[in-house]
Design a protein around this nucleic acid. Structure first.
Lengths: 205, 205
DNA sequence: TTGATTTGGAAACGATCATTTCCTAAACAA
DNA sequence: TTGTTTAGGAAATGATCGTTTCCAAATCAA
């Protein structure tokens, strides 16, 4: 998946950047996901990104800058993956089932152990870094809103009962999907997490 | 809540310890919960505990030792609180409702922002510290087992339908309660989290 | 070409980190 | 009392952290 989506400037002055921004950020977000913010040292980050400290500081300003850029990249990549998956279902219930199973799959085995950058940021940084807290809040609000819209879609296309409280159920599903990511850090199996996904669907019946 | 539960040695040699172990650990676990492991510096820990670095290193060996002791203390205190709460209900469903609401209450406002030490340890340390990973795993297994036992209790006392898959539902409730703690880091309201708790109970109907 | 601008990269920087050292104080055993 | 043991505490230690500096290289505009 390549984007470089934020760079809209066609005119660049000075020596052009030699490395691929998205590829570098993919490595950075992997290190941040695995290690967390503080345990990820500049040395480890630059080595993973294939850059020297100088280049990194030119491009991102400071360590927090790397993190925020990686956070944005992570969100972008994940959302694109989810949007693709959701398009294969044709009603609200079906899309929600795919969404819940998507998180279940992301919470298994080695992928699950790697963890979620947003969940990690919420627990490690939300209390003392206002900007990160804001971005985590926006990410969770976005995820909750998507679930809410899908529930309402299902209620209007007839795949989800109308008596369900859409708002509360959306927040519950948000908790569930993020909780899967936490439990997934302990290395759960495929079948177990998919069973959780199936049980979860009872909330929409 | 005072315990000093692990000290079974009545005979001590040398100068006796001057500080209260449980009180010191309560402060340490607060710092670790709020800051995370790496961001919690020895200076901040010792200041919060009201001790000097020398005393702390005599008592705990190293920073990880402080953390592991605080982790144990945290689990002990929380479990005692939960056990007390559960005893006020008289069937499986009632106990589970109290349990779910207990986590909902712990995920609101300032208390929720402070976060859960086990969830934080899972996301920050589980991948690179085997011992912490083990303790997190034990903690989650214990929590899941308690839920499972309560579901089976409910199924035998008639308060929970027999057709429910106890194992999968227990793991789902585990995800949900830990997920509440994650979402709670963004500062959710009392009524919202309690609504989540009510929706959650649909999994037991 | 020349000048302006930006990147790449090695080396150096000060700050802070976890930890140790060294000494004094307080308890018990002999 | 004296000796042994452990805790309290200030100061020092070495390592590592994030960051900056300095210079060469690469691009565009003039």
């Amino acid at each position: 998946m390549t984007t470089d989506s934020l760079d809209i400037s066609p005119k660049l002055r000075g020596r052009p950047r030699e490395f691929d921004m998205d590829a570098a950020l993919d490595e950075a977000l992997r290190v941040f996901s695995e290690r967390g913010y503080y345990a990820a040292s500049i040395s480890e980050l630059t080595e993973a990104m294939g850059l020297t400290a100088g280049s990194v500081y030119k491009a991102f300003g400071d360590k927090r800058g790397i993190f925020l850029a990686a956070f944005g990249r992570y969100r972008h990549v994940r959302q694109q993956l989810i949007d693709e998956s959701l398009s294969t279902a044709d009603n609200g219930y079906g899309k929600l089932r795919i969404l819940v199973r998507f998180f279940a799959e992301a919470s298994c085995g080695e992928v699950g152990r790697r963890g979620c950058l947003v969940v990690g940021s919420a627990t490690e940084l939300a209390l003392f870094d206002e900007e990160v807290a804001g971005r985590v809040g926006v990410a969770f609000d976005f995820d909750e809103r998507r679930i809410l819209d899908l529930i309402r879609l299902g209620q209007s296309d007839g795949s989800i009962p109308k008596h369900i409280d859409a708002e509360s159920t959306a927040c519950t599903l948000l908790c569930l999907t993020k909780g899967m990511r936490v439990i997934g850090k302990t290395g759960r199996g495929h079948e177990q997490m998919l069973a959780v996904a199936e049980v979860t669907m009872k909330l929409l019946a």
